[in-house]
């Protein structure tokens, strides 16, 4: 029975969630690009401060300065968390091996010890992030359910992956651990384009879009006035 589920998780479910993740993100980007193009076309003032946008974007993509400015502990933990989160799944030797076997794709892997170190830091920083969210009243109050869920959900594949590469310490059998690992990974892939994790692809455009947001269409105010039937009415 376990083998059946394993096959299912590795095959159809993986392909479904991976395709949904990639295509879903592509869809979001294309919709955003379309919206941005439309907004730019409509904007009354088409001059944008591109250099400022570019600088701010780079600044947030590689937030080296950011840790010093405010909430330094939270920032550093979150940077560590992101590093592990991005590097380990993509550059783990075993994952690359799967891609090589399946699609003939191959790219350099990180050393095993680094991968293990990053896995542990990611798990720890996820726990810290969760605690920080619960601890700080500001973030606790503005958080929705998914904000609490995400760090915990992300721990699962990392922890189970760690146990898969160290079966001797695993509380469950190898296959069961692998099943948990694959299913949780699939679930995360599935959720990426549907939740806030889509920021992984949208963040680079955010500054540009925010700036574009201030560039209203020429006749927007007048059109809204007409639509709401307030044309010519006293204020």
């Amino acid at each position: 029975m376990l083998e059946f589920w394993l096959e299912l998780a590795k095959g159809p479910i993986f392909r479904f969630s991976f395709a949904l993740c990639v295509l879903g993100l592509a869809r979001i980007v294309m919709l955003s690009a379309w919206g941005a193009a439309k907004a730019y076309y409509a904007a009354g003032d088409k001059e944008l401060p591109y250099s400022l946008i570019w600088r701010t974007t780079i600044h947030w993509l590689f937030p080296i300065r950011m840790g010093l400015r405010n909430r330094p502990f939270f920032s550093i933990v979150s940077i560590l968390f992101h590093i592990g989160l991005i590097i380990v799944p993509i550059f783990l030797f075993a994952h690359i091996q799967l891609w090589y076997q399946g699609a003939g794709l191959w790219w350099p892997a990180i050393p095993r010890h680094l991968a293990e170190f990053l896995t542990v830091t990611t798990i720890l920083s996820a726990i810290l992030l969760f605690l920080a969210r619960v601890w700080s009243s500001a973030s606790r109050h503005i958080s929705r359910g998914q904000e609490f869920m995400w760090p915990l959900l992300l721990i699962i594949p990392f922890l189970s992956g760690f146990f898969c590469s160290h079966p001797a310490w695993s509380p469950l059998s190898y296959n069961a651990m692998l099943l948990i690992h694959i299913l949780s990974g699939n679930f995360i892939l599935l959720l990426i384009p549907l939740t806030k994790i889509s920021h992984c692809i949208l963040t680079p455009f955010s500054q540009f879009i925010s700036e574009l947001g201030w560039h209203f269409p020429k006749n927007s105010a007048k059109d809204v006035e007409i639509t709401l039937g307030k044309q010519g009415q006293p204020i």
């Binding site: 590795k10 159809p12 392909r15 479904f16 799967l98 076997q101 399946g102 694959i182």
Partner: peptide
Amino acid sequence: FSLLPFSSLESKG
């Protein structure tokens, strides 16, 4: 995609 086996894009376990 989920219906199409890509020969071995999946892990063998």
